[in-house]
Design a binder for these strands. Structure first.
Lengths: 177, 177
DNA sequence: TTTACTGTACCGGCTGGACGGTCTTGTCAA
DNA sequence: TTGACAAGACCGTCCAGCCGGTACAGTAAA
């Protein structure tokens, strides 16, 4: 793929995420994204010929970022399990001020099928974790608790306090062994 | 409040949930809801003067149903804790073929603030559970795992198999004590 | 009993506006 | 000069909300 005059693609993807977060998932119009990215509507549609392609781009970049981050954590400290890496990575993600995936609601509103790759990725990750442990019950609890944490973060629910989340993470790490 | 000729309100709320589930959260138009409910658009707008009021109605009826179901479970078998009741209730909810809250994405797309009452409800429930146990860590893990289960159900992720979910629930009940 | 009036419940066409996507024109680097 | 790319006016579509109308139940005066 040729590189654009300026790498508009990433700017646009970031802008889309920002708009979804700040203006609400229902207000993710192409015009808003273009304006936010400092690009004209025509320019946006040049990079992403359709809104669906834009959503798809968001999903793909999210997934590849996540994959890379997980791999980095899992290998950098070779002693810890993938599950521990996943727990810590998710905890860090949730501590960041901006929920990284608030665009997801826009994607769902557009077409729920956009999430199919994410579901597949999750199932794949789960299978990988299953091969790493012999206590399926504990794994399930951990995996779902992380899912819950991520979901709360996504919904912008400040239901848990800072301390509670820290306690949760340490409890999960203990269960993960 | 006078009772309507037929209780259209509930019919409309149910229809809205159905449309959101089947046509996708982005296709929740007033016309679609009215048609599904066997009511004209004018009739719908008579009962819910604005789309926002309809969403609000969905949230309120969801919350009151949930509250009632939880109370019923918690008192019917007085021996079990509220946490156990919550776990079992959520497990049953997730086993039902139709996700009961798929309208939530429509509400979020419309305006994320619609979820405020739900967040408040969750926090309130969590506080209540905190008063029931002395092991905050375990409670956190359970609470978040349930959240994860509900979220997966909401996203229609069949990431977990039937057996896995059963194992998860039994593990949670064991942790809950 | 009849007739006229009132308020409730509901109908469905209409409109103004927003949005997605196209098309033509402009621009700049090579 | 050329072609990759940006700009933004433009068009068709869709939808929320409005509004004038209809049907009907209750009431009450005649």
């Amino acid at each position: 793929m040729r590189v654009p005059r300026a790498n508009s693609r990433e700017k646009i993807l970031a802008a889309a995420a920002d708009v979804a977060r700040e203006a609400g998932p229902g207000s993710l119009s192409l015009e808003a994204v273009a304006s936010r990215a400092g690009v004209s509507k025509g320019g946006l549609l040049y990079n992403f010929p359709t809104k669906a392609k834009l959503m798809q781009g968001l999903v793909e970049s999210y997934l590849s970022d996540f994959q890379k981050a997980l791999e980095a954590r899992a290998t950098e400290a070779g002693h810890e399990s993938v599950l521990s890496a996943y727990i810590k990575l998710s905890a860090d993600d949730c501590e960041r001020p901006k929920p990284s995936a608030s665009w997801m609601f826009s994607a769902i509103a557009e077409d729920p099928d956009f999430l199919t790759p994410i579901k597949a990725f999750k199932r794949q990750l789960f299978e990988r974790l299953k091969g790493e442990t012999d206590d399926l019950g504990s794994l399930l609890v951990c995996f779902l608790a992380i899912e819950g944490m991520r979901s709360m973060n996504l919904f912008d629910s400040d239901v848990l306090s800072e301390d509670e989340r820290k306690l949760l993470v340490s409890s999960l790490l203990k269960i993960a062994g």
